[in-house]
Design a protein around this nucleic acid. Structure first.
Length: 869
RNA sequence: GCCGGAGUGGCGGAACUGGUAGACGCGACGGACUCAAAAUCCGUUUCUGGAAACAGAGUGAGGGUUCGAGUCCCUCCUCCGGCACCA
């Protein structure tokens, strides 16, 4: 009989206490040992852990514990991305200071992480809102200013005219301020930028070396950088007859298709282009101004989206420019699809070869000239493929590549243009007009201009004990805080009151964990750990965070602080955690979202969901879509209550088992119960095994067929689980394999001494292989099954290949590709013997009877396909 | 709009290099135990036909390549992530 049922709360508390007492997860740099740095994206301390955190950190902990069992010196740190907008919102709502709210959240969430049993080295904890952290990024910024890598320029922000404040994009809903409801304006203010474009080429090339990164992320980053080769050249402004004034204006355009220049039928300026005012004719000025103000209040995404209002997407300026290739005058338009931030902010339009130009030309009744011959059966509109040039004078007949080269040669010979490379990537704007962020360490002097705060005066400390009203940043409204003296001339001066983008903190925290107490941004310990061996985080960070993170590493390298070129070798992007939504739709059209916890689901006799109602009073509830867990849809599930009910090991097991890590994970209460059931069962089965008697030492040569078969399953499972964790990152299938082996061992009732020895080997392997997933349960069972060492010191089990040899294999027999039978053969059985055996099968005979065997395909140890006709 | 990803039983998912579609888990159904329920254990479970053996169909839709396609190619649909001030 079982001595004690599975009691996760007691086991987990005891194991966590042991790890704390023994400082199990504190690490030091040891050059004698191979290091492994496993990093999960640090959380924003929003108040409580959500399922996305649990999923992320469970994956990280699994990898960390696995690598540790392989014998590596594993660093797994944790910290807090503590600056950000939500603290300001919470401060307004609760009338607290953002700092106090943030620190309280950190305390609570740290406790939650500890309760989940993650193997963090808490002695390296980093909190980004503390001056001892952000002082170093201020120092780095002042150095970048001196190098010219940080610079100031005018840039647009969302301005709320009622609240008199800058709004984040997230705070603009349908063009209005989320609090005031006022129509948001675009306002231009000077802001600080980092020259990430100087690193565009290296950021692009570096992707080719990142073998451990998902292809999708690398592709997105390549497209984001958006390198394109082309030509820049000038179109002189002329009158409608093509007459150019000497010393008149010209517009510069960038094109990747100079070979199509004979097909230019109009040109376009971005609405914000500085020459618009000078070029617009009087009769068009009213229309142009109206168009510009409408575009100015439209977000960039809306500008690029096709809203089906093509006739409102542009306006004629009244001006003409001269195409230097054919001396033709073409009209100059403004259009919302041309952005000032890309290329020169002006394009030559070739509707025959560009679909957006084609649509614009159709809408505005502009001529279309094809300059590349489309294929015979071409049914599309603009043709962007290859083909001989036509209607292009001295380019006619050339293919696209040759024509491009010749057109660019010609531009350079004529001295009117040149070859250039353009990037879609823009410099990183780091200024935010908000309080709860790292102060930008700059002093403005009327006489000396913008000055970096001298190194010995850093950090510029953000006051934390403030009353925060939300309309304005306290350091902007306080007349005293900004008062200072100019470091250059000593005269009265003012501090910058903007703060950094919070991506600034999350761009270098990984390096600070290596040396959290260093009296510099980093010290030599960084190179022991870096680059990160495994980085884990959400796919939503595929572009921005991961680009800034790579960029900042190169800044650290160029400052001599790290040796490597890239911050992380392997990257795993986990999917979202989603859940079913439930709602009650009121008669007035209102929608009330109901939490899954409060809903009873009704099913038909096949288990298909046919309805739902409130658990409390039976009110019918509509089943909505499966969506990302969120407050707005009220479909979030609190991990804390799950840990309380089932224990950390069950929550960890479910979040790894329910889906592969890179796919979205659908929350399921009954799935969690299934995970809990498995752990209870495993506990009981191992208990029963221990009660069944002491095994002798295993005699691998003296096993009977049943014992040998079980041992083969054990070692196949060891090999599969190792491969799934190490190479494939498919933790769900690793767990499935362990469940399968558990089922086999449960059915193996051989209590002979050798039988018990085989079972002991199997149960021990399961406990070890499962330990990165369910560390508490595994360590508690290991204490009873193991060899006296700690589980974490005993290492990762290795598959014994000799145990995995099979006596016989099943071969699938197909006739014309359809399954018609199975035969059992010796491993490595040749084609002729397999065919002879297959032809004896009655069902195979039935399907080939009266037909001629035309071909036989044999895949050794797998399949035999007999093709008849 | 642009870039990236996904779509397989009632549900989550498996099928790794083009070779048995549905591992494992959930749910459902049947049974054992129980006064009963819970828990636990055993069995069945893609659909259609059939007592069964077995046959036919089947991986978002439509085409194609191949002895053989969930997997490769083309066209399309739907959903999700990102788009530079949410983190």
């Amino acid at each position: 009989m079982s001595s004690k049922p599975y009691q996760p709360a007691a086991i987990e508390a005891a194991m966590q206490q042991r790890w704390r007492d023994e400082r199990t997860f504190s690490v030091t740099e040891d050059p004698e040992r191979e290091s492994f740095y496993c990093l999960s994206m640090l959380p924003y301390p929003s108040g409580a852990l959500h399922m996305g955190h649990v999923r992320n950190y469970t994956i990280g902990d699994l990898i960390s514990r696995y690598q540790r069992l392989l014998g590596k010196n594993v660093l797994q740190p944790m910290g807090w991305d503590a600056f950000g907008l939500p603290a300001e919102n919470a401060a307004i709502k609760n009338n607290t200071a953002p700092a106090a709210w943030t620190y309280a959240n950190i305390e609570h969430m740290r406790g939650q992480l500890e309760r989940l049993g993650f193997a963090y080295d808490w002695e390296r904890e980093v909190t980004t809102c503390k001056p001892e952290y952000y002082r170093w990024e201020q120092l780095m910024f002042t150095r970048l200013m001196k190098q010219g890598l940080a610079y100031r320029k005018d840039s647009e922000v969302n301005w709320d005219p009622v609240d008199q404040t800058v709004l984040a994009n997230e705070q603009v809903v349908d063009g209005r301020g989320w609090r005031s409801g006022a129509l948001v304006e675009r306002r231009t203010i000077p802001q600080w930028f980092l020259k990430i474009t100087d690193y565009a080429e290296e950021l692009l090339a570096g992707l080719d070396e990142l073998d451990g990164w998902p292809e999708s992320v690398k592709t997105m980053q390549r497209n984001w950088i958006g390198r394109s080769e082309g030509a820049e050249f000038s179109l002189p402004v002329c009158d409608a007859d093509g007459v150019v004034q000497p010393d008149g204006l010209a517009i510069d355009v960038f094109t990747t298709r100079p070979d199509t220049a004979f097909g230019v039928t109009y040109a376009v300026l971005a609405p914000e282009h500085p020459l618009v005012g000078a070029l617009t004719t009087d009769d068009q000025r009213e229309a142009v101004d109206a168009f510009r103000s409408r575009v100015a209040s439209t977000s960039e995404i809306d500008r690029l989206s096709d809203e089906g209002q093509l006739d409102k997407r542009g306006v004629f300026t009244g001006a003409y420019v001269l195409n230097p290739f054919n001396q033709q005058a073409v009209p100059l338009y403004l259009a919302d699809y041309v952005l000032m931030g890309y290329g020169t902010g002006a394009i030559m339009a070739v509707p025959g070869q560009d679909q957006r130009d084609w649509e614009f030309a159709k809408a505005y009744d502009l001529p279309i000239i094809r300059t590349v011959q489309p294929p015979e059966d071409w049914e599309g509109e603009a043709y962007t493929g290859d083909g001989p040039a036509i209607n292009s004078d001295w380019l006619d007949g050339m293919d696209v590549t040759d024509a491009k080269a010749k057109a660019m040669d010609w531009l350079e010979e004529q001295g009117i243009g040149r070859r250039t490379v353009n990037y879609r990537l823009r410099d990183w704007g780091v200024s935010r007009q908000r309080y709860w962020g790292c102060p930008i360490p700059v002093i403005y002097c009327e006489a000396c201009g913008a000055q970096p705060v001298p190194e010995e005066e850093l950090p510029v400390v953000l006051p934390e004990d403030v009353s925060f009203m939300g309309v304005q940043s306290p350091i902007k409204t306080d007349p005293e805080w900004r008062k200072t003296t100019c470091p250059a001339c000593g005269g009265a001066a003012e501090r910058e009151t903007d703060t950094f983008d919070t991506f600034m903190e999350s761009s270098w925290y990984y390096a600070r964990y290596c040396c959290p107490d260093a009296e510099a941004q980093l010290d030599e310990r960084a190179n022991y750990w870096l680059p990160v061996d495994q980085y884990i985080g959400g796919i939503e960070h595929a572009i921005m965070h991961l680009m800034y993170f790579r960029f900042y590493h190169k800044l650290l390298r160029d400052a001599g602080m790290v040796d490597s070129d890239e911050p992380a070798k392997r990257l795993l992007c986990q999917g979202m955690v989603v859940a079913e939504t439930y709602k009650i739709e009121g008669e007035d059209g209102s929608t009330t979202w109901i939490n899954p916890d409060d809903v009873e689901v009704q099913k038909d006799d096949k288990g298909k969901i046919i309805g739902a109602r409130l658990a409390s009073d039976g009110t019918p509830v509509t089943v909505g879509a499966v969506e990302k867990m969120s407050k707005s849809k009220n479909n979030g599930v609190d991990p804390q209550s799950l840990v309380d009910r089932y224990g950390a090991d069950t929550v960890r097991l479910f979040s790894l088992f329910a889906a592969p890590p890179d796919q979205s994970l659908e929350w399921s209460e009954s799935g969690v119960e299934g995970a809990f059931r498995f752990l209870k069962r495993l506990w009981t089965l191992i208990d029963q095994h221990l009660e069944a008697g002491e095994p002798t030492s295993l005699d691998t040569q003296g096993l009977d067929d049943g014992q040998r078969e079980v041992r083969r399953l054990v070692h196949d499972t060891i090999a599969k689980v190792s491969d799934d964790i190490d190479r494939r990152f498919t933790f769900n299938t690793a767990i499935a394999a362990l469940m399968e082996l558990t089922n086999h061992l449960a059915r193996f009732e051989d209590t002979s001494p050798q039988g018990l020895a085989v079972a002991r080997e199997g149960w021990t392997a399961i406990v070890q292989l499962l330990s990165p997933v369910t560390p508490h349960l595994s360590e508690a069972l290991w204490d009873r099954l193991g060899d006296g060492r700690r589980l974490l010191e005993a290492g990762w089990p290795e598959a014994d290949d000799s145990a995995r040899v099979r006596q016989a294999v099943e071969l699938v027999v197909q006739v014309n590709g359809k399954l018609r039978g199975r035969i059992t053969v010796a491993p490595g059985c040749d084609r002729d013997s397999a065919q002879a055996l297959a032809l004896e099968e009655p069902n195979v005979q039935r399907f080939i009877e009266g037909k001629t065997v035309r071909k036989v395909i044999h895949v050794p140890d797998r399949l035999l396909n007999i093709v008849v006709g």
